[in-house]
Simulated scan of single mutants.
Amino acid sequence: MTLHSGAPMPDSLRHYMRAKQHPARSVPCPHCGVAAHKPCELRTTGRQMPQPHPQRVSDWAQTIACCPACQVTPETPCHDDGRERATVHARRYQEAEATAA
Rank of each mutant, 00 (worst) to 15 (best):
M1R: 09
T2M: 11
T2G: 04
H4S: 13
H4F: 10
H4V: 15
G6F: 05
G6K: 05
A7C: 07
M9I: 15
M9K: 13
P10L: 06
D11T: 08
S12P: 00
H15K: 03
Y16N: 06
R18L: 12
R18Q: 14
A19N: 12
A19L: 11
A19W: 08
K20T: 08
K20Y: 06
K20H: 14
Q21N: 10
H22T: 04
H22R: 03
P23W: 11
A24Q: 08
A24I: 12
S26M: 14
V27Q: 05
P28L: 09
C29A: 07
C29K: 02
P30C: 05
C32I: 10
V34S: 02
A35L: 14
A36Q: 12
A36W: 07
A36C: 05
H37N: 14
H37R: 11
H37W: 07
K38C: 07
K38T: 13
K38N: 09
P39N: 04
C40H: 05
E41P: 00
E41H: 13
R43I: 11
R43L: 15
R43N: 09
T44M: 01
T45I: 01
G46S: 05
G46I: 01
R47F: 10
R47P: 00
Q48P: 07
Q48L: 08
M49Q: 14
M49T: 11
P50R: 13
P50A: 14
P50H: 10
P52A: 05
H53L: 03
H53M: 01
P54A: 12
R56Q: 12
D59H: 08
D59G: 00
W60I: 01
W60Y: 12
W60N: 00
Q62V: 06
I64E: 11
I64S: 07
I64W: 08
C66S: 15
C67Y: 02
P68K: 10
A69V: 03
C70F: 05
Q71M: 06
Q71R: 14
Q71K: 15
Q71F: 09
V72T: 15
V72A: 04
V72F: 02
T73N: 09
T73D: 10
T73Y: 07
P74L: 02
P74H: 09
P74Q: 04
T76R: 08
T76A: 05
H79Q: 13
D80A: 11
D80E: 09
D81R: 13
G82H: 06
R83G: 01
R83E: 10
R85S: 08
R85T: 06
R85G: 04
A86P: 06
A90L: 01
R91N: 10
R91G: 06
R91T: 06
R92D: 03
R92W: 03
R92E: 06
Y93P: 00
Q94I: 01
E95P: 01
E95M: 10
A96H: 03
A98F: 08
A98I: 13
A98L: 11
A98N: 12
A98R: 15
T99E: 09
T99D: 03
A101G: 13
A101L: 14
A101M: 14
